[in-house]
C-alpha cells in the first residue's frame, strides 16, 4: 500500500469543438466517494458518453442545436461537442462507478477503495 500519493488526481485534458460549450463542474470527495458533478442543461442522456478504462475516465457530450424554426433576438447559451479526460485517483473501485442525470446535472459517483475509507479502530 502506498502511503503518499504525489500524483495529481482529477487532472483533466479538454477537447472542445463548438462555440464555447464548456460545462461547469465540481469535483469533491466525501468519506466514501469521489463525486464529479457537471451542469449540462438541455442535453439528453443519449447525447452523453461515459467511459472508464484503467484509471482514465472519459466524458463526452454533444449538445445539438435546436431544430425549431426560430430566430434569435439574443442568445447566451452554447452548443457543440465537449470531451473531458480525467485521471482517477489510484485507490478507487472503478468497476463500481455510477452515474445519474437529473435536472440537467450529471452526477458521477466513484467509490473509494476500502483503504481510503476512514474507520474507527477498536481499542483492546
Amino acid at each position: 500500500m502506498r502511503l503518499i500519493s504525489f500524483l495529481p488526481i482529477f487532472d483533466s485534458f479538454d477537447f472542445r469543438n463548438g462555440n464555447g460549450f464548456d460545462p461547469d463542474m465540481d469535483i469533491f470527495e466525501t468519506d466514501k466517494d469521489f463525486v464529479i458533478e457537471a451542469e449540462i442543461p438541455g442535453v439528453s442522456k443519449n447525447d452523453m458518453k461515459l467511459n472508464v478504462e484503467n484509471d482514465i475516465l472519459t466524458l463526452e457530450v454533444e449538445k445539438k442545436k435546436k431544430k425549431e424554426d426560430e430566430s434569435f433576438i439574443f442568445k447566451e447559451s452554447r452548443e457543440g461537442k465537449f470531451k473531458k479526460i480525467f485521471s482517477l485517483p489510484n485507490d478507487v473501485e472503478s468497476d463500481k462507478i455510477k452515474a445519474k442525470f437529473e435536472n440537467g446535472v450529471l452526477r458521477i459517483i466513484i467509490p473509494k477503495a476500502k483503504v481510503l475509507i476512514p474507520r474507527e479502530i477498536t481499542l483492546n
Binding site: 458533478e37 451542469e39 449540462i40 442543461p41 438541455g42 425549431e68 424554426d69 426560430e70 430566430s71 434569435f72 433576438i73 442568445k75 447559451s77 435536472n103 440537467g104 446535472v105
Partner: peptide
C-alpha cells in the same frame, strides 16, 4: 427567440 406564433425565453438553470 421568436417563432411565427410565440416569443420564447429559454433559461439554463440546471440542478
Amino acid at each position: 427567440s421568436e417563432t411565427k406564433d410565440n416569443i420564447l425565453v429559454t433559461v439554463e438553470i440546471p440542478g
